[in-house]
Simulated assay, not measured.
Amino acid sequence: MTIIILSLLVFASAAAYMAAIYLKKAKWIYVLKPGTMLLIIGVALIDLQGAGKYGILIVFGLLFSLAGDLFLMLPTDRFLEGLISFFIAHVIYAAAFMAEWSQKLDDLNVLIWLMLALLALLFFRLLLNGVKEKGGRAMVVAVSLYITVISVMTGMSFLSSQGFVIAAALFFYLSDATLAWDRFKSSLKYRDYMVMSTYFLAQFLFAVSVYLF
C-alpha cells in the first residue's frame, strides 16, 4: 500500500512540475523538481533492506542524480558539475546491473552494444561543433565521456533481463539526448516537457526495479 501511495505522489508531483513549467512558476519549479526526485528515492527506500546490493546502488544513483538536478537548477551555469554528478550516477547504475545481471553476452547483446556504440559516435559528431563553441576542449572531453558512460549503462541494462530496467535506461538516454541536442545543436520548443517527462519516468522505473531482484 505504501508503494502505491508514494507512486501516486510521484506522478502527482511530476504533473505539478509540468504545470509549473507551463505557468512559468519559478518557485514551484525549484520545489517540485527535487521534490519529485525525493519521492522517487522514497519509493526505492521502502524495502531497501530486502533489496540487497542492487537496491543500495540504485539509491546512490538516485542521490547523485538529485545532486545533478540541483546543480542544473542553480542561477549560475553549473552544467559541468551537473554533468559530473550524472556521470557518477550512470557508473553506479551500471555497477548495479553488473551485480545482478542474469544474461550472458550473446549475439543479440553484442549487436545491441555495437548499435549503441555507433549511435554514440554519430550523436557526438553531430554535437561536436556546438560543444566546442559553448565549452571548449574541457567540455568536449566531458561530453564525450558522458556519452560513453550513458551508452555503457544502457548496454548493461539489457543484460539485466528486466523490462523495467531496460525501459528506465532507454528513457534516461532519450532524456539526456534531448537535453544535449537542445543545448549544443538546436533549440527545441518543448524541451523541458520532453526532458523531464522521460527523466522522471526513467528514475521512477529504476526505483521500482529495486523490488524485482
Rank of each mutant, 00 (worst) to 15 (best):
F158V: 01
F213N: 10
T36L: 09
D77F: 05
S186H: 15
N129Q: 08
G136V: 09
F213E: 05
W101T: 05
M194Y: 15
A96D: 00
N109W: 12
L6G: 08
V110D: 02
R137V: 13
L121S: 15
P34C: 07
Y173S: 07
K27S: 14
P34S: 01
V149W: 07
K33N: 13
L62E: 01
E81T: 04
F158L: 00
G130S: 02
N129A: 09
I4L: 13
S7T: 15
K33A: 12
D192L: 10
S7M: 09
M153C: 12
G55W: 04
L74F: 07
I112L: 13
V208D: 07
I88L: 14
A207D: 12
K53M: 08
A202F: 04
A26F: 03
F87I: 06
K104R: 10
A117Q: 12
F86T: 02
I29M: 03
I166A: 07
I58R: 03
F60E: 07
A19D: 08
F172V: 05
I150K: 04
S160F: 06
G55V: 00
L205G: 12
L118G: 14
L83R: 00
T198P: 03
H90W: 06
A168Y: 10
A167Y: 10
L38P: 00
L205S: 03
D107T: 15
L119C: 14
F71S: 00
V140N: 01
A67K: 04
L57W: 05
V141S: 04
A117C: 14
S65A: 14
M73C: 06
A89K: 05
V31T: 12
F184A: 03
L66R: 01
S175H: 02
G35V: 05
I46K: 00
I5V: 15
L119N: 06
M98A: 14
V10M: 07
K24A: 14
L121G: 09
I4F: 11
L118W: 05
F87H: 03
L63Y: 03
L57V: 05
E133N: 08
A14R: 03
Y146P: 05
V152C: 03
M73Y: 04
L70Q: 00
Q203W: 00
M1Q: 13
M196N: 10
A95S: 12
I150N: 04
F123K: 10
